[in-house]
């Protein structure tokens, strides 16, 4: 959908409000359920921007709303070269 008309809940992945509601209809009750069905929260910001909005769309009833977020390293994008650039670790692997 075009940026000028779509209501993107997840900006990074361009997932619309409609797609999120469809996932809820399919049984999603958690952020993880939405994520697996739509790819929302899997973008560059890893859900920092959209997670709150999605959370508010989830059905309030029933299911564990206090599920743990699955936050995993890295919390910022990190360059692979920087992770490898360091003299002392050379040869640790090969």
């Amino acid at each position: 959908m075009e940026a000028n008309t779509a209501k993107f809940i997840c900006r990074c992945q361009e997932i619309t409000e409609e797609e999120i509601y469809k996932a809820i209809e399919d049984g999603a009750t958690t952020i993880k359920g939405i994520k697996d069905r739509t790819e929302a929260t899997m973008g560059l910001c890893q859900g920092r921007t959209c997670r709150r909005l999605i959370e508010r769309m989830l059905p309030a009833s029933g299911e564990p709303s206090r599920e743990r977020y699955s936050c995993r390293p890295p919390v910022r994008t990190v360059k692979i070269g920087d992770l490898l650039k360091d003299e002392s670790s050379k040869g640790e692997f090969e």
């Binding site: 779509a6 209501k7 993107f8 809940i9």
Partner: peptide, 28 residues
């Protein structure tokens, strides 16, 4: 640009806040 593993006995998280986003048609 260098990679570290820092082992701390105590960690104080003071990472602050970030701005809320709002969605409406055209918000992207």
């Amino acid at each position: 640009d260098n990679h570290y593993s820092i082992k701390a006995k105590r960690v104080i998280l003071a990472t602050g806040g970030q701005e809320n986003y709002m969605a409406f048609p055209g918000s992207a």
